[in-house]
Write a protein that binds this DNA or RNA. Sequence first.
DNA 1: ACCTGAACACCGTTCAAGT
DNA 2: ACCTGAACACCGTTCAAGT
Lengths: 213, 213
Amino acid sequence: MLMPMPRKDTTKGPAGARRAYHHGDLPRTMLAEAVRTIDRQGIAALTLRGVGAKLGVSRNALYRHFANKDALLLAVAAEGFRLLRVDLQGAWEQKGGGALGLDAMGAAYIRFAVQHSSHYRVMFGRALGEAGEAASPDPSASGDAFGTLVVAIDTLQRTGVLQGGDSLQLARYAWAVVHGVSMLAIDGLLRTPADVEEFTRFAVARVRTGIGA
Amino acid sequence: MLMPMPRKDTTKGPAGARRAYHHGDLPRTMLAEAVRTIDRQGIAALTLRGVGAKLGVSRNALYRHFANKDALLLAVAAEGFRLLRVDLQGAWEQKGGGALGLDAMGAAYIRFAVQHSSHYRVMFGRALGEAGEAASPDPSASGDAFGTLVVAIDTLQRTGVLQGGDSLQLARYAWAVVHGVSMLAIDGLLRTPADVEEFTRFAVARVRTGIGA
DNA sequence: ACCTGAACACCGTTCAAGT
DNA sequence: ACCTGAACACCGTTCAAGT
């Protein structure tokens, strides 16, 4: 028996969930289910039909909320860049900036990639837009995350912690290092979680030696 | 009109091509066609049917030479690691080793990734073995390429060019940096080829500052 | 030995139709 | 408004059959 929905659903879920649909907040649920599937079975195993089946919904229901499969993956990437930006910003502020702040950002970046490896793979794995240049996944979102790093490095240059020169170049270098370490970690080339932590500390210290004043 | 094939084809092609099949050396041709397709349309656009059609061959002909699609991609990755190892070794030897040799290896690595981006994406893009840990693409091949770097770094540690400590750790760091730079370059985050060259020089110099003696 | 055609169990996507 | 079933044009893979 179907319960008729009140015109306005005043019971808000945690984290301010929007109005409930027949199956709850379907867009958000679909996004979460997609991430869970990628976590457990890889990007290749993600099918719209599978997501629908898991959610007890027709295989076409998804098209009500996302233009197509790529749009779903784009949403995963956008969420990832948003989470990453928050983590980076938090790490920087928690240390009150400075050299320790930069180290903390590096560690936070790698920790994000390891803990949200599904998001991370979609963000950088070229699962979408493989043909041609393609749209980078929400350039403003990725730009914001990168921008957080640029601002931090710019600050450290002015306080004499880092060497002078093009701050964008320094930021790209730091980004390349933590990205490379993240890929090694995700792909299991650093055996244990302890190895990852140790190598993270090592790499972050090397970066500072490399671009320090 | 079909020409009957002689029982033994004594005319060898360049690079010691094996016996000719109805359509020439089909395995090699298929591999090349797969790479070309990925180059032009991305990994997602690679289909066995498409490769067959391009080669004027049935869509099942491939299974005579490769177990399945993953095996074809595995062959692309293996070829990539082999080419990369040769490039790295060549760069090191051409400079007669030393600090310049390490810089040359770094630049050669990034140049390889940019010039053979299709190979590179398959090597590291998790196009295969997405479910679970999966087999790393021909571990001995990738190990050989990495081993080339480890040997170089070990040498430089003994000659006092690089700092002491675990040579594997230093090698992993150098690998992570050039891998990160390669991904940035491939994904078009460094605008022009000139940018790539300039950033490569910058990054390689930063690595040496970071792990130098 | 090598290749083919037909068939199977999947996909993403579209569209007319239901409530 | 939101959801469904049937249909279309694709896949990878298998298998019996051809030369």
